[in-house]
């Protein structure tokens, strides 16, 4: 299974990383090398094997559904590159 340039461009867009033509060429080679390497997993028989998502073996702990944190907007916004009226500010989305 080999990726072409158009597919890598599509993945880069999905990942929201702007990529120019020269970078795409380099990425196509690197990604195909990596995918070629992981391809060997197809040799392994995994019939009737349950996928392992977590090694902890325990379920997620539950707690009461109450507010336990918050009410400090200044601290939340302290690192924002841009802010306005107590909110994060971003380029205009709706015309």
């Amino acid at each position: 299974m080999s990726l072409d340039k158009a597919t890598v461009a599509k993945i880069a867009h999905l990942a929201r990383i702007k990529t120019d033509d020269a970078q795409l060429d380099a990425m196509v080679g690197d990604l195909n090398t990596i995918l070629g390497f992981v391809e060997q997993l197809s040799e392994v028989n995994t019939d009737n094997v349950e996928p392992l998502a977590s090694v902890t073996g325990h379920g997620l702990p539950l707690r009461a559904d109450v507010v336990t944190d918050g009410a400090y907007p200044e601290r939340v916004l302290a690192n924002a590159p841009d802010r306005a009226h107590g909110y994060y500010a971003v380029p205009k989305v709706v015309e």
Partner: peptide, 23 residues
């Protein structure tokens, strides 16, 4: 994503800002 902390590289749209920042 350039919204809450760290580097932001501006763009003409929100999507462009994301893509420029992450690039």
């Amino acid at each position: 994503d350039g919204v809450r902390y760290g580097l932001r590289v501006d763009g003409d749209s929100l999507n462009e800002m994301y893509e420029n920042t992450r690039a």
